[in-house]
Amino acid sequence: MDLSKESLLNLSWSDLSWFQQTNTVLSEETALPYFCQMGNPFYDRSSLNERFYMNNLTTEAMMNASGIEYIVMQKQNPVLFIIRKQYRESLNEARPLQEYYILAPGHIYQAPDAASVISHRLLTAVHHFGKAFDEASQKAAYHPSSGYYWKTNSSSDELAKKDSSKEKILTQTQRIRFDTIFYSFRDHFRPRAPVGATAQNSIASATTNNDAVGTTNGTSGGSGDNNLPRKEERTPSDSQSITSERPMIEVKKQKTQK
C-alpha cells in the first residue's frame, strides 16, 4: 500500500477481530504480532519480521541479518505500546526510522517527527493569533467625548446614554488637540479674494489717494472742509487795481460829453 508520509500521519488502523480470533488481548507478547498483520498500512512486508514469520527463522538469525525490522520500544501495559521501525546494519548497530503507537484496545497511529510537530504548532499559533487580532480590531472603537474603548454589550448602552446627553465634557488633552488642529487648518485654508477684485480695489484706492493730495495742495494752510466748493481769493493788490481803473473811465466819459 503506497501512502505518503503526510497521509500516514492522518491515518489510523485497527483490527479488533484479530484478538477474538486468537482469543487474546493487547499485551507485550501480542503487540508486535498484531502490528505485523498484512492489512496494516504501516507495516512493510519486506521487513525482517516478515521473513521471520514466513521462514520460521530464529531470533539470532534475524539479529545478525541487515534490513528493516520492527521492535517493541516502550510499553505501558495494557494501555500503550510503542513500536519502532529501524534499519539494522549489524548486530549492535541499528538506525531508527519511524515510531508507531498502539493504544488500547488496538488502534495504531504513526508518531509525527519533530519537524511536523513544530510546523503544526506554529501554524496553529499563527491561526489563533490572526483570529485574536481580527476580533480585537472589530471590538476597538473611538468616540470624541470618551476616547478609545472596547465594544461590549454594556459599553454600547453607556455610549448611547452619553450620546443622548447634551453636555459633552472634554479633557484638557482633547481641548489642546482641537485648538492646534483648528488654527492650523484655518491658516492653511484661509479664503482668498479673486484676482480681478484685488486689481479693482487697488485702482480705486489709488484714485482716492490722488484726489486727496490735490485738495490738500490747493488749499492754503490746509484748513477747512475739502468737500465744500472753493471760492476765488483776491489779494489786496488786485482790489486796488480794480478801484483805480473806475475813476479813469468816468473822466473819459465826461470829456466826450463836452
Rank of each mutant, 00 (worst) to 15 (best):
K258N: 13
E167N: 12
L16W: 03
E28S: 12
V126R: 09
K166V: 14
I71G: 07
Q240G: 09
S239I: 14
S223E: 13
P41S: 01
E93Q: 08
E99Y: 04
H107Q: 12
G39A: 06
Q254T: 12
F52R: 14
F133V: 15
S7L: 10
Q76E: 11
S164R: 08
L228A: 14
S184C: 05
F81H: 01
R190I: 10
K161P: 03
D15W: 01
R230G: 04
P105T: 05
I68Q: 02
N153K: 15
Q240P: 05
K231L: 13
Y100V: 02
G67Y: 02
M38V: 14
K75H: 05
I242C: 06
R121C: 12
R51N: 05
Q74V: 07
S155V: 03
L228F: 06
Q254C: 07
Q86D: 02
R84F: 02
N92S: 07
A104C: 11
Y101K: 04
E250V: 13
V213K: 09
T30K: 00
Y109K: 10
A104F: 09
A206Q: 08
E29F: 01
T215F: 07
R234N: 09
Q20F: 00
V251T: 15
E28P: 05
A136H: 05
D187N: 14
A94C: 02
W150V: 15
I71E: 10
K131T: 10
K253A: 11
A111R: 06
P41F: 00
K161A: 08
V251Q: 15
A94R: 01
Y149L: 03
S27E: 02
E29K: 03
E233G: 15
D157Q: 02
R84W: 02
F178H: 10
S17F: 01
D187M: 08
E135G: 12
N226T: 15
D113H: 02
M62I: 14
A111V: 13
G221R: 07
G222I: 03
T124G: 10
I118V: 14
Y148E: 11
L170C: 05
E29W: 00
T171H: 04
A114F: 06
Q257A: 12
V117T: 12
D211F: 13
L170M: 07
L3A: 10
L123M: 15
L170A: 06
Y34L: 01
H143A: 09
M1G: 12
I118N: 03
Q20H: 02
S164K: 12
Q174D: 09
C36G: 03
T215E: 12
D2T: 12
P236F: 04
N201M: 12
I71C: 08
L48P: 01
E232T: 14
L26H: 00
N23D: 07
Q240R: 13
I82N: 03
G221I: 04
E69D: 13
L159H: 03
